[in-house]
Design a protein around this nucleic acid. Sequence first.
DNA 1: ATGCCAATTTTCCTCATACCAATTATGGCA
DNA 2: TGCCATAATTGGTATGAGGAAAATTGGCAT
Lengths: 242, 242
Amino acid sequence: MTQADDHPLSRPSSTTQRAVHDRIAHDLGVAIVGGRYQPGDILPGEERYSAEQGVSRTAYREAVRVLSAKGLVYSRTKSGTRITDRLRWNMLDLDVLAWMFEAGPTAEFLRDIFELRIVVEPAAAQFAALRRDGQDISRMGHALEEMRRFGLQTAEGRAADQSFHRLILHATRNESLITLATSVTAVVAWTTRFARDERKESRDPMPDHDAVFDAIMRGEGEEARLKMLALIRNASTDAGML
Amino acid sequence: MTQADDHPLSRPSSTTQRAVHDRIAHDLGVAIVGGRYQPGDILPGEERYSAEQGVSRTAYREAVRVLSAKGLVYSRTKSGTRITDRLRWNMLDLDVLAWMFEAGPTAEFLRDIFELRIVVEPAAAQFAALRRDGQDISRMGHALEEMRRFGLQTAEGRAADQSFHRLILHATRNESLITLATSVTAVVAWTTRFARDERKESRDPMPDHDAVFDAIMRGEGEEARLKMLALIRNASTDAGML
DNA sequence: ATGCCAATTTTCCTCATACCAATTATGGCA
DNA sequence: TGCCATAATTGGTATGAGGAAAATTGGCAT
């Protein structure tokens, strides 16, 4: 166990103090996607911000570079750093999505993502049915077993559920689809985390999952697509979305 | 004409010299997505790189922040800056896609994007059919007129074609879908730019476009989806993809 | 020889300062 | 009033100096 017990994906733990530039990027990012800055507005100048916030110009600049890389702002000498209009934002970037969520997601934002989910995940199931190999199948089967054993009330059960969906993505052999679905499912997870337990009784999720798995196992692409669509529709209505 | 004749989207013109950190990010980005660095490899240290390349540590660090924001690398003190594994890359970032294309896109990469196109654009047409208003319709109609008038051999005709597809996206009223489709169509445009003119004679694209427009105008979602699917299939086979 | 612990070194992170480049604003002149 | 040179502002780059954390090294005891 020489290295990398913590992955770079994991959000900085509460103990680890975040890098300064990272914190600045986070704060500005939340403020921007939250609408406290409007497209066309100019961010505070380097001199001013660093003085007011008690950080170095270096740290502020690196934060701006991050925001710029995600399409939220663009800098021009003398003109200053302006907020880009929303059409150029990298809406599917995991950080941007997280900031949106933290800023208090609008209903339109959530609707957009759940629509995207309905487009993407059934398509993923379809590709998975056409490209999966034996190992994919056995792993999916194992994930469903665990899910059935623990149920969605336990952490293990939810982990097995997520694992099942990740295995489907992996079986598509399409990296761009994986990237996209990762972002989408992250938002879905954040959303349903809060919606959970408020419902009186949730339906048994296993029949839907079994149907998807069965279609993928038999290599039936179109059927896998439709079964996944049904699964999402049920899950979404249960979570109060849709 | 006081400001902003050039949009931030436009690539820096040949006259404007790019910022140093931008050039570094570009060079490293191309090298990374091109496989000259493998996931797990460590980038040169700040001191070393800045000395060898004759740039400041500041510029190099800002470039690394950009790459980090796009998920290509991650930095840890002492451990150095390492290449992230591909699953965490922001494959749908416009810069990353451009770097992939510049590095010489692999066949799998192109296949992935065109598959994504087949998933996304028909879905966009479907949503557009359900949400478009009168202004959307009239603008789409105008774009098709222009396209018919000039043909795809001219720059104006191609601009009208792109405009038509952009208008469909706009009519979806779904920002995440717009972001996604923007990236996808960029890659498609880069690809077909080279494939053009090599074919002996391209089929007339207007019937397919008219059919999509007609379905959207009548508000027939499912039909719009199918017509767009047909349009893409024809265009892709003409371009030699698929 | 092996395993554990402390010191050292390496590398990224932050800050501060200086100067450069480009663009906007200003003010004078015709 | 309109144009043009000058000045001021703001982001961009370079450099030096420490600080913090992790990997390595070396010593010590078992």
